[in-house]
Nucleic acid binder design. Structure first.
Length: 895
RNA sequence: GCGGGUGUGGUGAAAUUGGUAGACACGCUAGAUUUAGGAUCUAGUGCUUCACGGCGUGGGGGUUCGAGUCCCUUCACCCGCACCA
């Protein structure tokens, strides 16, 4: 009987679905285990072989844990709000809901073909109104809470202590300054191309994370989340998480805690406040610098310098973040004409403005110490400002950033600079000129987007738009609009629908908030909804949350290091403070699966011509690399020109310069439709089956590692499954015997069980696949047909290749699914070896092997050696110094 | 610049605490079988040498009886942050 994977896989996928085999039981007495994948955005192009890598790994763990007696929650859903669906809607006028639903269906279909053990009864889509009503509900919780810095937790806004002597209006605006979700007019990242505001986390090197479009700073009124209140806890709690160090580090850097002092420099009747981590260098301050956005600039600029200052400010405001960064080396700046006083030395120092000082960090102003800070040093040299060295060290005339003794500070000379830090801070504090403080790089989270396809924000404004009020009739559904484009004046498409924007409640007129939430909102808490997806009274039942949380294993890409993972932790902590969830952290263990890369093919076009030249013929010609579809290229990199011309009309009139064949070049890149290098899991499943695909993806290498896809090696895994199938067959018929397995068979079996169990615990799936291959090779060469051994092997393999194992399991006469069969355990006693070959080496160099009893004593070896039975030939008359006998089967003789 | 990571055959990669480096698989070579095969089976396959042997985990140095693994140094590549005061 042939291994008919197509029939087998179809049969069992249907079986699992119909029998709800993987339904997680909320009332089970078994210990729980929650395995979560980062749910996908259902894009229009479907899955490629890279997507399932993490899903397969988490599925193996899920099936393994189920088999180990755990009650496993392994859900899947879709992060279905997002920009591509909206952009498609803008182009075609189709409602994003429609295209999203189509894409979700396609994704589900593709996922099911892989035999993933999801509990589909718990499926959620973030764009469903009965899901996002709770996203909106959580938003209102944030709106109605504040952070109590004494208790170090969030509390309902009613508990906020209000300062006395405030009238009603003032009380309300005081509350507004404390809410965790608040409105503020701030300098936001505006992306013209996307027509929306972006969070700091979504801007990379001055360009938008999505699409790579330029981003400029622009003051806008926005909803903001006070994530900075949680900075310390988000930082400290990292230590208790079993996460990859690199992710923890990214979060740590992003939060960017630094300890230092705020120092007030008097100027006229006012003062300039700066933040510094180096109060010990205060005597070396030779000028101050303000960011061009600093509010004091106008006040302190003298008439003489007013023109140049306003020109500079104007110029800086027009620069994008990217342009600012380009000038990193060449510092620019202008003198304000004013002087401030050094609060310790009372020296008069000039005040400058420059865009190397960021308004968004610290106080937006710095004290410049050119002798001990490289940026200040460059600036001072360029504008010929004074440089005073106050710490001993480094070369003369060079900027020194290390530690040392204080110099040029009169009475303080000779003190260690680290000690001097606290002396300065104490002195400042006693004079009311400054204080110790901590600063964070983390900014509050800009939460609103000028988009259509997102959660509407459940807020209404009174008629003067002065006050934001909660709108708690949830869900607040997305209204219909005529066009999905943002309006010209930076408003969301929702603002186009006047009927919706204007609302009357109890005879009073209100206006709705028209911005929507960012894509991250839905994914901030989806793992909680999986626990209780159909609950209409609360976002999830508290007891069920207590039962299932935290997520024991979270598998997903490293690209979410500071976005999703930080936001989700933040929301979770708020919900924890308010008593809605039972754990302060949502994800206990995190595994980052690597990316599977594509092997792109390029045809080379000679620059400024329509001629393409075979890669092996390029000599001096300057060429341009053009992607061609990898399905038209054979394994020797020869391009099938006919196929290409037939499928890609743009190549129809192209001239191909070639010898016998036309060769392309190859390069490893991210897999994507636009690079024509996508390998679809559907094709692999058709040819080899899902079990082969699953095992091959695991076999490719460590899950955490990125690696190029190479279909070439898949035949090894395919033939392994065929061998496995054959092990249960004799003369074309299913066959197992009741023979007692030999000692040798038992040894191989127990060795494999030990290896596989250990490997799954360590997420080392590639080595366990190897262990299976070795095991099956040996068992088939021994002709093992023992029912007992083979059926246990079947359970052992079932997390990896579930379909074939289910099929064999039923052929073995079982009528229940293999999924909950007890996972095999190994017995150490079968692994002990009585006679072992010991390599014997002399001075560390291997010479020969001897066979000895496994439990031999070192004395016996010594007497063997001393009797010269072993060593005459090698010792050559020299005497033995010592004999080293180590448990790793080595005897080493030193002479 | 700062921080983190990775360097092992033709390829993907293995190698608990330092203990016979290259398991397993692809590829390649030879053979068997088949009308044929992107099928199956057997053997070989780090480099070098006719062979004995020698050399081999990016380079150099060190510790050790013994180093892919530990220490120092250096190079290359990748990732994150980046004028963060």
């Amino acid at each position: 009987m042939k291994y008919d994977f197509f029939k087998i896989e179809k049969k069992w996928q249907k079986f699992w679905l119909e029998n709800k085999t993987f339904k997680a039981d909320n009332n089970s007495k078994k210990p729980k285990y929650y395995v979560l994948d980062m749910f996908p955005y259902p894009s229009g192009s479907g899955l490629h072989v890279g997507h399932p890598l993490g899903y397969i790994a988490s599925d193996i763990v899920s099936r393994f844990k189920r088999s180990k007696g755990f009650n496993v929650l392994h859900p899947m859903g879709f992060d279905s709000f997002g920009l591509p669906a909206e952009q498609y809607a803008i182009k075609t006028g189709q409602h994003p809901k429609k295209t999203t639903e189509e894409n979700v269906l396609r994704f589900k279909n593709q996922l099911d073909k892989l035999g993933l053990s999801f509990d589909w009864d718990r499926e959620i889509k973030t764009s469903d109104s009965n899901y996002y009503r709770w996203t909106q509900w959580i938003f209102l919780k944030l709106f109605n809470s504040y952070y109590d810095h004494g208790l170090n937790k969030a509390l309902p806004i009613e508990k906020l202590k209000i300062p006395k002597n405030l009238n009603e209006k003032e009380i309300e605006s005081f509350k507004d300054t404390k809410r965790l979700a608040y409105v503020d007019t701030i300098n936001v990242n505006w992306c013209e191309e996307l027509g929306t505001v972006l969070a700091n986390e979504e801007v990379i090197g001055g360009l938008s994370e999505r699409g790579g479009f330029p981003v400029i700073k622009r003051p806008m009124k926005q909803w903001v989340m006070r994530i900075t209140d949680y900075a310390d806890r988000l930082l400290n709690d990292l230590s208790e998480l079993d996460w990859p160090e690199s992710i923890k580090l990214s979060q740590k850097n992003w939060i960017g805690k630094s300890e230092g002092a705020e120092i007030k420099f008097p100027i006229d009747n006012n003062f300039i406040e700066v933040f510094t981590t180096r109060p010990d260098t205060i005597f070396g301050v030779t000028y101050l610098v303000l960011a061009p956005e600093h509010p004091l600039i106008n006040e302190i600029t003298t008439e003489k310098y007013r023109k140049s200052i306003s020109e500079y400010v104007e110029l800086a405001s027009k620069k994008s973040d990217l342009e600012r960064q380009e000038n990193e080396k060449d510092k620019t700046g202008v003198f304000t004409g004013s002087f401030a006083l050094n609060p310790i030395s009372n020296e008069k120092i000039p005040v400058w403005i420059s865009d190397y000082v960021l308004f968004s960090y610290g106080t937006g102003a710095i004290m410049a110490v050119p002798a001990h800070d490289e940026r200040d040093n460059k600036f001072a040299k360029k504008f010929d400002l004074k440089i005073i060295k106050v710490i001993d060290g480094g070369k003369k005339d060079e900027c020194y950033t290390g530690n040392g003794s204080i110099i040029n500070c009169g009475e303080y000379d000779g003190i260690d600079n680290i000690k001097f830090k606290s002396i300065v801070v104490e002195k400042l504090e006693s004079n009311n000129k400054g204080n110790k403080t901590t600063n964070y790089k983390l900014r509050d989270w800009i939460f609103t987007r000028q988009r259509y396809w997102g959660e509407p924000i459940p807020i209404i404004y009174d008629e003067n738009k002065k006050r934001a009020l909660e709108f708690d009739d949830l869900p607040l559904e997305l209204p219909k609009v005529e066009s999905y484009l943002p309006t010209n004046d930076g408003l969301s498409p929702l603002a186009r629908n006047n009927n919706w924007v204007n609302i009357s409640i109890n005879g009073k007129n209100y206006l709705r908030e028209t911005n929507t939430m960012p894509q991250w909102a839905g994914s901030c808490w989806y793992f909680l909804r999986f626990i209780d997806p159909d609950n209409n009274n609360e976002f999830a039942n508290k007891d069920l949350i207590k039962h299932w949380m935290p997520v024991d294993l979270y598998v997903g890409g490293a690209e979410h290091a500071v976005l999703h993972l930080l936001y989700a932790r933040f929301w979770h902590k708020v919900l924890f403070d308010l008593g809605y969830v039972s754990t302060s952290e949502p994800f206990k263990k995190l595994i980052n699966q690597g990316m599977i890369l594509g092997n792109s093919a390029f045809a080379h076009r000679i620059k400024n011509t329509n001629d393409f030249i075979s890669f092996d013929m390029i000599k001096d010609e300057k060429t341009q690399k053009i992607h061609v579809d990898i399905s038209f290229v054979d394994k020797n990199n020869r391009l099938n020109i006919e196929k290409l011309k037939k499928n890609n009309p743009e190549f129809r009139d192209v001239n191909f310069i070639k010898g016998e064949s036309f060769y392309v070049s190859r390069d490893i890149e991210k897999m994507s439709k636009s690079r024509y290098n996508v390998i679809s899991p559907d094709d692999i499943c058709k040819r080899y089956g899902a079990d082969t695909l699953r095992m091959y993806e695991m076999f490719l290498g460590p899950v955490e590692q990125s690696k190029p896809w190479n279909t070439g090696g898949i035949s090894g895994v395919f033939s392994f499954l065929n061998k496995f199938w054959k092990l249960f067959h004799r003369d074309e018929k299913f066959y197992v015997s009741d023979d007692q397995p030999s000692d040798e068979v038992l040894k191989i079996y127990h060795k494999t069980v030990k290896k596989v169990v250990n490997d799954i615990d360590n997420f080392s799936f590639n080595t366990s696949v190897s262990a299976f291959m070795i095991c099956i090779n040996e068992l088939s060469s021994m002709g093992c047909s023992s029912r007992n051994i083979l059926s246990n092997l079947c359970i052992l393999l079932s997390p990896f290749a579930p379909h074939i194992c289910e099929e064999i399991w039923s052929l073995l006469g079982n009528d229940k699914s293999i999924s909950y069969e007890k996972y095999p355990e190994f017995d150490e006693k079968f692994l002990e070896e009585s006679i072992v070959e010991y390599p014997v080496s002399f001075n560390g160099k291997l010479r020969f092997k001897i066979s000895l009893q496994n439990n031999i004593e070192i004395k016996e070896v010594e007497s063997l050696v001393n009797n010269h039975k072993l060593t005459n030939k090698y010792l050559d008359g020299k005497s033995i110094k010592k004999i080293i006998f180590v448990p790793k089967k080595i005897i080493n003789i030193v002479f």
